[in-house]
Amino acid sequence: MRVTYDRTVDAAYVYFTDPQDRVKSAHTYPCDPVDVDGMINLDFDEQGRLIGVEVLAASSKLPQYLLRSAERLGTEGA
């Protein structure tokens, strides 16, 4: 499983696809539950399979060990 994190926008993405595959999202289902106090987007491929989850406000939603081990994106990863 591949996880990316961009600290600048505090967003993480968890991929459920093989890193070698170039799967494109055909449909995004936004979830904004009040109880979670944040935004989560579910990405599905053309066959309706879940291919990834985007988590906004990731630093308050995901375990810190996961964010520390995630691939860095944005200017901090350069």
Rank of each mutant, 00 (worst) to 15 (best):
R2F: 11
Y5M: 04
Y5T: 04
Y5Q: 01
Y5A: 01
Y5G: 02
R7T: 12
R7L: 11
T8C: 12
T8V: 15
D10T: 04
A11E: 03
A11T: 11
Y13D: 04
V14D: 03
Y15T: 07
F16E: 05
F16K: 06
T17E: 10
T17G: 02
T17H: 02
D18Q: 06
D18V: 08
D18G: 07
P19M: 04
P19W: 05
P19C: 07
P19G: 02
Q20A: 13
D21I: 08
R22A: 13
R22V: 11
V23H: 03
K24L: 15
A26E: 13
T28L: 08
T28D: 07
T28Y: 04
Y29A: 12
Y29F: 12
P30A: 06
P30L: 05
C31L: 15
D32R: 06
V34G: 14
D35R: 14
D35Y: 10
V36C: 06
V36D: 07
G38W: 00
M39N: 10
M39H: 11
I40S: 00
I40W: 00
N41T: 04
L42C: 06
F44M: 02
F44E: 01
D45G: 02
D45F: 03
E46G: 12
Q47E: 15
Q47Y: 09
Q47N: 10
G48C: 06
G48Q: 09
R49D: 14
I51A: 06
G52S: 07
V53K: 00
V53T: 05
E54I: 03
L56Q: 03
L56S: 02
A58M: 07
A58C: 05
S59P: 02
S59Q: 08
S60G: 11
S60P: 09
S60Q: 15
K61V: 01
K61M: 09
K61P: 01
P63L: 13
P63Y: 08
Y65E: 15
Y65H: 15
L66N: 07
L66P: 03
L67M: 04
L67D: 04
R68K: 14
E71L: 08
E71Q: 09
R72K: 12
R72V: 07
R72I: 09
L73A: 10
L73N: 09
L73R: 12
G74Q: 03
T75G: 13
E76I: 08
G77P: 00
A78H: 14
